[in-house]
Design a protein around this nucleic acid. Structure first.
Length: 423
RNA sequence: GGAGAGGUGGCCGAGCGGUUGAAGGCGCUCCCCUGCUAAGGGAGUAUGGGCAGAAACCCAUCGAGGGUUCGAAUCCCUCCCUCUCCGCCA
């Protein structure tokens, strides 16, 4: 959520800044709500004050043994007038809050203009794309029966996967490898977190209220949702917390499954592991001092890149243009791995700085020094990396003419000495 | 699943219908005193909002939401959560 004060001060400037991401701010509605809020609030508070004063008088009079009936009469219908006014005020407050919850974050000044993916700007390219003296296969062809979509369709439906044998093991080892690097070399603290979360948690990170159609809902006594990314539970570690200055930055890493409805992507990426309802990720989250978040975005992105480099996978880093930017992000750098089977780069990590946007929704604060007022922290996250897509990138980049796959050096110890995958 | 006890500030904890945003303690900040140390004295110390900011003033907030009342931390209802005992269970 954007700062309501800043909003009040200059909504036109905010509307202008949001145009970069192609968001049309409904200024008329905003002004209507804000004006109504202001009028009602003043009116309500005056009336409340009146009631408080009179009630206090009654208390004093009663204690002194005076007759309070005339005083009670004087309060008259104040109560019912207050009730009516409070209802109206709360309704407006709710509408205004809801309005603000639907407004995306302001893009950082460095975010390039553009409407779609095509206008993202390449920052750097790493690694040499493999050259094959044969026609490279995609991961579905390569994995053969180790990737059992017939089973996953029977078990759950389309867009799920069943991995078998060494392919399933490689999938598990990738998780282990990534966690080890981030914990032992990059200094992250590992977390194990819930995969089913409540509405408040989903609202804090920005998935709700706007994107309820994109996530899986769990039926029950209270509303709960399957996490679409580990960012949700991890960032909510600091929801409603007041951290000490000395605790920052917090660096968390966690491996979780991610569940997505993919409701807007019918017919898109239907082949293989590229776009599924359930996949695994190792996620990096930074909770930082507001002055440190831009540097942290660099650090976090480099940490994710380290994984690709260790695995010897060619990739490029792109900065997302305004039109491709996610709802809560101020700036995002995507890491895209080269996929020979698709003859293109595909996203394996998305590293974002949310500045205070999520922190405000989450009321995640810190105290700069013992006497100071609390301030909002900044939050960042990025995949380090998406497991399924990394797995298929390994298959496609390391494939050989005979259909076997040579494993990257760093994974061999994890695989118990297995150097080549045969399917 | 059954029975019971609870949820109050950064933390502990009192209050159970009126001037209580909340005693007391711990912690923290500033000042004073004490030649170190230990200890002592004083003042201050929630969040959000009315309001860009400061002061003053005002409003709201005692797990959440409703209700009763002139007035609710306090009484009633619903929900959420925590703890203890029993049962069940990876």
């Amino acid at each position: 959520m954007l700062d309501p004060r800043r909003f009040r001060q200059d909504p036109e400037a905010i509307a202008e800044a949001l145009k970069i991401r192609g968001f049309e701010l409904d200024l008329a509605t905003y002004h209507d709500l804000e004006d109504a809020r202001h009028t009602l609030q003043t009116e309500l508070e005056t009336l409340q004050h009146e009631r408080n004063v009179k009630s206090k008088h009654i208390g004093v009079a009663k204690q002194q043994g005076e007759d309070i009936t005339p005083l009670v009469a004087e309060v008259g219908d104040l109560g019912s007038r207050l009730d009516a006014l409070r209802d109206k005020f709360q309704q407006i407050q709710e509408s205004l809050h809801d309005f603000l919850l639907h407004v995306p974050n302001l893009p950082d000044a460095s975010v390039p203009p553009g409407d779609s993916e095509e206008e993202n700007v390449e920052l750097r390219v790493w690694g040499k794309r493999p050259e094959f003296d044969f026609e490279p296969k995609d991961h579905v062809e390569l994995a053969g029966t180790s990737l059992d979509f017939e089973a996953s369709v029977r078990i759950s439906g389309s867009r799920f996967s069943v991995l078998k044998g060494n392919l399933a093991k490689l999938h598990r080892c990738l998780i282990q490898f990534m966690l080890d690097v981030h914990i032992e070399e990059h200094g992250y603290e590992e977390l194990y977190v819930p995969f089913i979360v409540n509405r408040e948690t989903m609202t804090a990170t920005g998935q709700l209220p706007k994107f309820e159609d994109d996530v899986f809902f769990v039926r029950g006594e209270i509303d709960r949702f399957l996490i679409p990314t580990a960012e949700v539970p991890i960032t909510n570690m600091v929801r409603d917390q007041i951290l000490d200055f000395s605790e920052l930055p917090l660096l968390y890493v966690s491996h979780t499954p991610c569940f997505r409805r993919e409701s807007g992507s019918h017919g898109k990426d239907t082949r293989g592991l590229i776009r599924v309802h359930q996949f695994e990720k190792v996620e990096l989250v930074h909770i930082t001092h507001p002055d440190a978040s831009w540097e942290a975005l660099e650090t976090l992105t480099r940490h994710a890149e380290t994984i690709l480099q260790r695995l010897g996978l060619p990739y490029r880093a792109v900065v997302l243009c305004g039109g491709d930017l996610g709802f809560a992000a101020a700036k995002t750098i995507d890491l895209e791995v080269w996929l020979p089977g698709f003859d293109r780069y595909r996203e394996v990590s998305s590293c974002s700085n949310f500045v205070d946007f999520q922190a405000r929704r989450a009321q995640a604060r810190f105290r700069p020094d013992p006497t100071a007022r609390t301030e909002l922290v900044h939050t960042l996250n990025g995949s380090g990396l998406a497991i399924g897509r990394t797995l298929l990138a390994i298959l496609e980049n390391y494939q050989r003419a005979d259909g076997t796959v040579q494993l990257p050096e760093v994974l061999i110890p994890y695989m118990g000495g297995v150097e080549v995958l045969q399917f």
